[in-house]
Amino acid sequence: MNIYKPELVEIKEIIDETPDIKTFRLKFKDEKLQNNFSFKAGQFAEYSVFGEGECTFCIASSPTRPEFLECSFKLAGKVTKAMRKLKIGDTMGLRGPYGNSFPLEEMKGKNVVFIAGGIGLAPVRCIIWNVLDLRSEFKDITIIYGARSVSDLVYKYEIQDWQNMPGVKTVVTVDPGGETSDWKGEIGFVPSIVEKVAPKNENTIAIICGPPIMIKYTFPVMEKLGFSEDSIITTLENRMKCGLGKCGRCNIGSVYVCKDGPVFTYHQLKELPDEF
């Protein structure tokens, strides 16, 4: 089998999330594949634009909603630039799913705190829907999401749904200066909002994803709130190529982020060399 050859997918819908982020709703061209494709929240895939190359993104949709496979991407390089030009009905390639996943089973029966910044909501959104679709198996749910400005918030159309759900506390914030005149959410950086919201640490698992600077300042807040290193979970965004534990690009120490990750506990991250 040629492990480097992707399957073909078709773009069914395109959502403009922010000025530089889009979401694609994809379906395998092969119906059998579409029906049999299974993955877990937190896993990623390699998406191709033929002639331009491959790019790594998490799968942003939930395994509980298999109608489409979704990916959200921000304009950054050659492939994302090409992806922005694609239209509904265009063909892309997809390899995956790869990597480990969020510890869904372990989270059952516990409170869950989701903290995300910017496009970091993509992997978190996947597990949020996974949890919400199995709502009765989890206790209290807290979602804290922030972006630079109101126009940089992704999945706005779903945040409303989360806010309306009973037993789900949803707090949305924008960086100071990023608010609009009619903004009703919080204003402040994610770490300080987390401190303000102060989710309980007891019987709780926290999932955090966002830009490195947000993660760096959120970890100490979580520790201050009494979260153990093992109860804080994040996902790494190292540069990857193969996704198969071969090409050597995503190595941090003896860890292959593409195989052993992308999901790591804060405790595991502390054990790794400082190279991410």
């Binding site: 033929f50 190359g53 090409c247 050597g248 690009r249």
Partner: peptide, 9 residues
């Protein structure tokens, strides 16, 4: 054995 993967037209 590190490698890159690129597309060429």
């Amino acid at each position: 054995h590190c490698f890159d993967i690129v597309d060429e037209n």
